[in-house]
């Protein structure tokens, strides 16, 4: 390495943010370059100074004598009494979330079966919006009841995994149903452009097929990408938030047939 280290490289080195390979590569340069070595030492000194100053400044700050255990003891006692009862309620709430998510999955599967698969097989013609709506609401229960909850504030109980997997599966199934729903919406919207004719119908159906192809691609990407994201963030605030927004978006999409 001939050039001097950049500020980014120096900061990364000083803050211990580099991978072993990157660090080794920079080490070789640092051995031969007194200027970069001095710059790195400057960063190390600056960091040590900041750390010492911050610690000294905060060490000089102490809570006032009013901040005592006696001041919170009544609230702690009261809340703890309530909290014991709340523990039982929480047990039901936790497992209630899993049950709601499972019911959501069943309803979403039923919506796909009744509204997509049966018409394809010629078994049923009239679609029902109540099934997917009910599925969305049931999936919304665990997603919204844990919205904003941090993983460290509660241990990752097995039910969190079960609820997260059920939510992922339920939203994926609902998404599958919504592809068929959006195709119908697209067809109906296009057919409004002119008087009914076989040519217009053929154009609308071609558009619908392209729509299904496009939405199918988006669905696959979202299901795989979302699954990976939730797997890495299970039980975290970010995962609950994404589930909640997904369910909300899906419920909003379900209202489209009412508008078109």
């Amino acid at each position: 390495m001939k050039h001097h280290l950049s500020e980014e490289e120096l900061t990364g080195y000083a803050l211990n943010l580099l991978t072993d390979a990157d660090r080794e590569a920079l080490d070789q340069h640092l051995q031969d370059c007194p200027a970069c070595h001095a710059a790195l030492e400057g960063h190390a000194r600056q960091q040590a100074r900041m750390q010492a100053q911050l610690q000294a400044e905060l060490a000089a700050r102490s809570p006032s004598p009013r901040m005592t255990f006696a001041a919170i003891a009544p609230a702690v006692r009261r809340s703890r009494r309530v909290s014991r009862r709340a523990g039982v309620l929480e047990f039901f709430r936790s497992y209630g979330s899993v049950i709601a998510a499972a019911v959501g999955v069943i309803l979403a599967a039923a919506a796909v079966l009744r509204n997509v698969t049966w018409p394809l097989l010629g078994l049923q013609q009239n679609a029902s919006l109540s099934l997917p709506f009910a599925a969305g609401i049931m999936l919304g229960v665990p997603a919204f009841s844990h919205y904003g909850q941090n993983r460290l504030q509660r241990p990752p109980l097995p039910w969190i995994w079960v609820a997260a997997m059920a939510l992922w599966l339920g939203t994926a199934l609902l998404g599958l149903y919504e592809i068929a729903l959006l195709r119908d919406v697209l067809l109906r919207a296009y057919l409004r452009f002119g008087p009914p004719s076989s040519q217009l119908l053929a154009q609308a159906e071609a558009l619908g097929s392209w729509g299904v192809f496009f939405m199918g691609g988006v669905w696959v990407a979202l299901v795989i990408g979302g699954g990976e994201y939730h797997y890495h963030h299970v039980g975290q605030r970010a995962s609950w938030r994404l589930f909640a927004w997904t369910v909300l978006a899906q419920l909003a999409l379900l209202t489209l047939p009412l508008l078109v």
């Binding site: 919170i72 523990g87 509660r154 241990p155």
Partner: peptide, 8 residues
């Protein structure tokens, strides 16, 4: 202190 049972 109230939610100590949540600490793992």
């Amino acid at each position: 202190l109230v939610n100590i049972r949540h600490y793992a």
